[in-house]
Amino acid sequence: MTSLLLPRRTFLSGGLGALGVMALGLPALRAQTLTPVALQLSWLHSVQFAGSYIAREKGYWRDLGLEVALNPGGPNAPVEPPVVSGQALVGISAADYTAAAVEQGAPFKIIAVAMQKNPFVIASLPANPVNTPADLVGKRIGMALANTPVLQALCTINGVDINAIEIVPTQYDAAPLLANQVDCLLCWETDLPVAMAIQGVESVTMLMADHGYAVHSQTYIATDDSLANRRDQIVALMKGEVMGWNDYKADTAAATDLTLAAFPDQGLDRATQLMQAERQVPLMFSDLTDANGFGWFTEETVAQNIETLALLGRTVTPELWDRSILEAVHGG
């Protein structure tokens, strides 16, 4: 609030005093024109959010009048609550998580979709591969028990009897597969298979999205209240995101280096991050985004999502998705 008073004081006082105040006042004035907002990430800092880092480092948000804080997530970090409470303007969730939160009374809308294809894969070793859902029969799969509905949905879509698969509860770690405690893992295309590859272990991945599992991932969510009252800020935030992710697609190596430089304390390994950055591209960008822009979704993709979510036990309506922000971003 002091910054509001500064211009007047600059006029009133003269000479050295004015110079001093101006020297102090300039950064304050600039900060005053930027609106501070927060984007709640869903995991620790890594190239998973490189588009956002580009938007921040290249000043895309600054030029749009925003000062964006990128709040990291973690294994025990809440994503939906900070958005509900207004600490974060926008959060990065997933369609199934968002559906569950809405069921619990959170007033969310999905305003954009970063991962057009769900990143869940079944990872296995070449000697004993899982190439199709049918290959799962008779295998031991390592996964968090909490993800049983995900496997159930995949089985239902592909007509596989889930009882023919042995579920072994594991922590999120590739070691059980390498120790031959399980035959395959339920994980993300972009994390455990990358870790194995970096350690020199070749693996086979079956992308569940290629077998009918349609759940939007890394979705941007905002509350009804923010959409009504802070619309300009959300549009500006998403504009910066789109610009950042477009740069990312153009040069993943540069995006990786920018991420490493921005977060020297994260213990990021360049080779790992580069491979993750490359593997992310086909999940995030498609003919749909080429035609309409980053983050896009259609009635058709929403309908597919509603179908898969129903298999996961989540009943949602198309109203959960709100494309008006994207339309403003890509239209303007």
């Binding site: 620790l44 990291p72 997530g73 973690g74 294994p75 970090a77 922590q171 770690d173 994260q266 390994d269």
Partner: peptide, 17 residues
């Protein structure tokens, strides 16, 4: 959800084999 620290590195190390 922390920006840095031993816990952050531990998660990264465990996930990254």
């Amino acid at each position: 959800g922390a920006e840095r620290g031993m816990g952050v590195l531990a998660i990264r190390a465990m996930r990254g084999l």
